[in-house]
């Protein structure tokens, strides 16, 4: 039997890797977007684990909606990234410091 705590620790690991990745890769916008997806993956795994162990299907329904919203978010994020790239010519975050602090 897969224990609940194993899955929870696994998704906490993914969450930490995602947050750490954002922290470490602040200059690289694409990696930041990928780390946001990692955080959402951790959340989804959490919901599915709780749905299994609480014998309640609502957790899986929530995952459904989170996947939908994450797809929409990825689309909008990439559109905005594209706009930034067109305006600036590069994605190096060093160039993105017109707005200070």
């Amino acid at each position: 039997m897969v224990e609940l705590i194993d899955v929870l620790i696994f998704s906490a690991l993914l969450l930490m890797i995602g947050i750490g990745g954002i922290f470490l890769n602040r200059k690289n916008l694409i990696i930041i977007l990928l780390c946001i997806e990692l955080i959402l993956l951790a959340v989804n795994t959490n919901f599915i684990a709780f749905a299994y162990f609480l014998n309640d299907l609502n957790g899986q329904i929530f995952v459904f909606f989170i996947l939908t919203v994450a797809a929409a978010e990825a689309a909008i994020g990439l559109a905005i990234l594209l706009l930034l790239f067109r305006n600036k010519g590069s994605l190096a975050v060093d160039d993105i410091s017109e707005l200070k602090g």
Binding site: M1, A12, A51, Y52, F53, L54, N55, L57, Q60
Partner: peptide, 15 residues
């Protein structure tokens, strides 16, 4: 937190 209180699995026939 997870070690201190987590529910234990019973059955999963509703899923």
């Amino acid at each position: 937190v997870f070690l201190s209180d987590t529910p234990t699995s019973v059955s999963s026939d509703k899923i």
